[in-house]
């Protein structure tokens, strides 16, 4: 009878969503607590900084350079319609630092980092390694979750800062080589026009996105269902939910910074 009620499935979906939101909030709270209170496992933080930060440099760098380059071409084409080609450097730097640097780098990291975390922690869950941690007097939130959250909070803004620089140089490269801009003028226009607010707003976004990336990876891995299929689903869910939350958070944060 309830199957025929058209409102029931909607209500169920809403309840399910609320339940998940509640579970993620509790998980995040426990993760933050573990991050703030000792014992801290600095070795784990260091290892995660390497894995999240250092090894993501190529992915983030390539994303940034191509995005900056494409952006410059598009702005040039668009600007030419009302004789505003000279604004390429100004708009590239705004586009990259405020929006595309943080968002695109974080999306790439969601694919790379959230997925890897969910797969690793999920495999630990299904092979009882997380249970084993408990029996060895070690809190998995301190040993697994907190180091990942902290490492992501530190390394994603740094990666985005690097992406900003590389992205601007992607635009510079295209503009000077293909569009006949003068290199020195391009750099001067970029620096004169850019404000510190453009960069910091992007870096604040990056911190939030970094937290989302690690949180989704850890949450879905930690709650992985049994078996290889469970781990596979956890990995997919981690990437998809991290990406969606990044878009949602990006909009919310942008409304604060305009």
């Amino acid at each position: 009878m309830s199957a025929l009620n058209p409102i029931a499935p909607i209500g169920q979906a809403v309840l399910g969503l609320l339940r998940t939101a509640g579970a993620i909030s509790i998980f995040a709270w426990r993760g933050i607590r573990a991050m703030l209170l000792p014992p801290w496992y600095f070795g784990q933080v260091g290892a995660q900084l390497m894995r999240i930060g250092f090894y993501s440099l190529p992915v983030v760098g390539l994303t940034a350079v191509f995005t900056g380059a494409a952006l410059a071409l598009n702005i040039y084409t668009g600007g030419a319609r009302f004789n505003a080609e000279q604004f390429v450097p100004n708009i590239v730097v705004i586009g990259i630092t405020r929006e595309l640097g943080p968002v695109l780098a974080s999306l790439m990291l969601a694919g790379r980092v959230s997925a890897a975390m969910a797969a690793e922690i999920g495999a630990m869950r299904v092979t009882e390694q997380i249970d084993a941690l408990h029996t060895l007097s070690t809190d998995p939130f301190r040993f697994l979750v907190a180091p990942r959250l902290l490492a992501a909070l530190i390394s994603v803004p740094l990666l985005v800062l690097i992406a900003d620089i590389i992205g601007v140089f992607g635009g510079y490269g295209v503009s000077t080589v293909i569009l006949d801009f003068n290199g020195a003028t391009y750099i001067r226009n970029t620096l004169d026009f850019m404000t510190s607010g453009d960069v910091t707003s992007g870096l604040i976004k990056a911190g939030v996105f970094g937290f989302i990336i690690a949180l989704m990876g850890c949450y879905h891995g930690y709650n992985s269902a049994r078996g290889a299929q469970g781990v596979g689903r956890a990995t997919t869910n981690a990437v998809v939910s991290a990406a969606i939350l990044i878009f949602a958070a990006n909009y919310t944060l942008t409304t604060l910074f305009v």
Partner: peptide, 16 residues
């Protein structure tokens, strides 16, 4: 928990 030592059926070794 600190009083316990457990051998899991599947070993549950940390592979990292």
């Amino acid at each position: 928990m600190g009083k316990f030592g457990m051998l899991f059926q599947g070993g549950a070794l940390f592979d990292s």
